[in-house]
Simulated assay, not measured.
Amino acid sequence: MGKYLVLQTDFGLGDGAVSAMYGVAHMVSDEITINDLTHDIPPYDIWTASYRLYQTVKYWPAGTVFVSVVDPGVGSHRRSVVAKTAYGHYIITPDNGSLTHIRNYQGITEVRNLDEVKSRLPHSEESHTFHGRDIYAYNGARLASGEVTFEELGGIVPTDSIVEVPLVEAKYDGKIFSGSIDVLDVRFGSLWTNIPLDYFKEAKIDSGDRLQVTIYHDGKKVYQNIMQFVRSFAEVEIGEPLVYVNSLINIGIAVNQDSFSDLYNIGTGTSWQIELRKAAKVIFEED
């Protein structure tokens, strides 16, 4: 195990919450390396927490321990769990849907229940609203440092009992590619869909082809345009929309040097769906 601990929360960095998690982890062991996935998950947004784990986890060495704390049910009867992924990583998180994308797209081999009474920071028993510090960071550091093993953290939980948030299945029916707008490339406002590049390969969609892009919100059409499928943003003019392949090898929608999301008020999640189809060539006859 590489002794890496990676933290994700919706806490932001405006107060000492994340620093307290670091401190607890270093009290457990000064030999672990602590890194941040992000602390800018929108408050209570379990969907985005799940997606950011999917986006990131497999690019870390096997054995890395992730702690994901987006926990609107903190202090309630929701479970705390530690999951082992098919790639050999560990994720400690509330059982509230944060493991959805990992389970469906990368695989989870085993899940164990984390005892919130016994497995917690010593002398924190009276605290019921900061499990990120008292339970998740504490046990994440114990696991990353080798103080405890995965098996010692708790009893086995049936994988099919894990809470999931709804997903929209990407489809290709021979003519139309359809799926959901799962998340934004936050800083640049590009749309990341769940439509895999393999569907384009199956349909022999090549760089330079033009595609009709239609976006729906709760079933209502809110955007439609024809744009080019390109390898890089530089292949279209500044301000021009485009279709591209994102870093997860799925289809993305963007505007060169602008925010597609801001320009057209496009959001993310299962209520935002997208369709693409190859646009017919338009031939202009000379007079």
Rank of each mutant, 00 (worst) to 15 (best):
G2Y: 05
G12I: 07
G14A: 08
D15A: 06
V24K: 00
D30W: 06
T33G: 06
P42Q: 12
P42V: 10
T48E: 09
T56N: 12
Y59M: 10
Y59P: 05
P61Y: 06
T64P: 05
V67F: 00
V70S: 08
D71P: 09
G75Y: 13
S76C: 04
R79P: 01
V82S: 06
V82N: 05
A83R: 00
A83G: 03
A83V: 11
N96F: 06
G97R: 06
S98F: 03
H101D: 08
R103D: 09
N104E: 12
E110W: 04
R112G: 03
R112F: 02
S119G: 06
P122V: 01
E125H: 13
T129L: 08
F130L: 03
G132W: 00
N139I: 03
A141L: 11
A141E: 13
R142T: 03
R142S: 04
R142E: 07
E147I: 14
G154L: 07
V157F: 09
P158L: 08
T159E: 15
D160C: 11
I162T: 06
V163D: 02
G174E: 03
G174N: 08
G179Q: 09
S180A: 14
V183L: 08
V183Q: 12
L184G: 05
V186R: 13
R187M: 10
G189H: 11
L197P: 01
Y199Q: 07
K201V: 12
D209I: 04
R210V: 15
R210T: 15
V213Q: 12
T214L: 02
Y216S: 05
H217L: 15
D218M: 05
G219W: 03
K220M: 10
Q224A: 13
I226G: 08
R231Y: 07
R231T: 13
F233C: 01
V236W: 01
V245P: 00
Q257R: 14
F260L: 15
D262I: 06
G269Q: 07
W272V: 12
Q273P: 01
I274W: 01
R277Q: 14
A279F: 02
A279D: 11
E285M: 12
E286Q: 14
